[in-house]
Amino acid sequence: MSDLRERLQELADVAARHGRTPGPEVARRRAHLRRLRLLGGTAMLVVLAVVAGTVATDRPSDRPTPLTPTPTAGPTLTTVPTNSTVPLPRWIPSVTPLKVRAHPGPYPGPDPGGIVRDVTSLVRGCRDRSQVRLWARAQGKVWLIAAKPPPPGRQHLCWATALMNQGGGGALGTQSSELKPLRATFAGGGNRQLGVVSGMVTKRAVRLRVLFHKGPPLDLVPVDPGDQFPVNFWAGLFLETGPPRAEGQLPVPAVDRVLAFDQAGNQIAACRMRLGLDNSC
């Protein structure tokens, strides 16, 4: 009967042999990005709220100029529902959905700031090569999803997202990895900025509908990254508009709910986008 020391050593040896960590360049690059973020001070975007994400990294250079929104076809309501217990009502932007097609990877470029390289190297764990699996362009910006397929028998996916602008600057985010029938992340740019809702969905889904608090719904078609993935990816882009956010006013994600439908038109999954524990996306 081996003692505790020997058994622990055996476990450690086996784990060390089977562990798959990326090379030192990934640690160095992440450290570099964090340094840039610290030096940069304020974020590139007014808000980068990746609701279900874990890390967001921004670059100080090439700060995008505010976008000019297209004439809104959505509701013009600009007042905010108030809650008597909250002194300042939360800021809920109106939304103009953009008709943008999401494409499967690889991203054809250009990539002047190395954002494609960075977002693929951020994807950790899993197996095979990290590649861009979805990209969508609007308003001079590109939204990217990079991912690696899960190892056999494991119920998680390794993926990361990035928003890149024309000059090469951008923002990166790693994402929560547990597989779900529907998972959505949200990145809002604030008043007069581009917003993105994206995620993964079961391959049974052929259509998604994004419902906003203020604005018409956005219908989307998932992008199939291939058979090695148990899910498809999807992304929807929109413009957020006024009223201007007051100082100290907390934002609410523009997205309320996301619904997924199968071929027959049946709703097969849904989630509710919230900040904090109430979020089911």
Partner: peptide
């Protein structure tokens, strides 16, 4: 890196998590 993943694995109980914290 491998040695540390080995040492963290018995603590996390999950190889993937051990890799993540070490990284």
């Amino acid at each position: 890196v491998s040695r540390l993943v080995g040492q963290l694995f018995p603590v996390t109980g999950d190889l993937h998590e051990a890799e993540e914290v070490v990284q």
